[in-house]
Simulated scan of single mutants.
Amino acid sequence: MKIIKLLSLLAMPLIMAQQTTRFVYQVSIKTDSTDAKSVKTELANLDVSPTESIFYGDKRLKRDSIFARARQTRNFNFDRSMFENLQSNIDFIIKKNYEDQSLVFRSRIGRDEYSYEEKPNFNWKILPETVKIGDYKTQKAEMTYGGRKWDAWFTTDVPVLDGPYKFSGLPGLIVKIEDEKGDYSFDLMESKKIDAPAEFLTRGNVVKLSKKDFLKQNATYRKDPVSYMQSSLNSRGGRGGGNRPSPTPQDRKEQEDRLKKSIADFNNPIELN
Rank of each mutant, 00 (worst) to 15 (best):
S88Y: 09
T51V: 10
N273E: 14
K37N: 15
F122D: 00
R63D: 01
E178S: 15
D187Q: 10
F76E: 05
K37S: 14
K149N: 14
Y165M: 03
D195S: 14
F83Q: 12
S191R: 13
Q18G: 06
K137G: 10
V175W: 11
A36L: 13
I263N: 12
F23Q: 12
T155K: 11
I94P: 00
M12A: 14
L14M: 13
G134C: 07
L6A: 08
R252L: 15
G57Q: 06
S107K: 14
E142W: 05
L259F: 05
L7P: 02
N89S: 09
I3Q: 05
T31L: 03
L86K: 03
D47P: 03
E142M: 14
D187M: 05
R71N: 15
R108N: 05
I194P: 08
N243H: 11
S81K: 13
S8T: 15
D35E: 10
S65G: 01
V27Q: 07
I93V: 15
E52N: 15
D179E: 02
I270T: 11
E271T: 00
R203F: 14
E256H: 08
A11F: 01
E52F: 03
L170E: 04
F23R: 08
Q72H: 14
P245L: 07
S235Y: 00
L161N: 09
D79K: 14
K212E: 14
K125V: 14
E199L: 09
R108M: 07
K212C: 01
N85C: 03
K212Q: 15
F105V: 02
D100N: 13
N243M: 10
I270F: 12
N267H: 13
V48M: 07
M12C: 10
S115E: 12
N273W: 01
R60H: 05
K192N: 11
Y98H: 04
L233S: 03
E142C: 08
S28T: 02
F78S: 10
D183T: 08
W124K: 12
K260S: 02
S235I: 01
S262Y: 10
R222F: 05
L9W: 01
M16E: 04
R60N: 08
L188S: 03
L173H: 02
L10K: 01
G146M: 06
D112V: 09
L46D: 04
L161Y: 00
I94S: 02
F186G: 00
K37M: 04
D179N: 06
R236T: 15
K166E: 11
Y184N: 04
K166R: 15
L161V: 11
A198K: 07
A152Q: 03
K208F: 07
N97A: 09
S65I: 02
G147K: 08
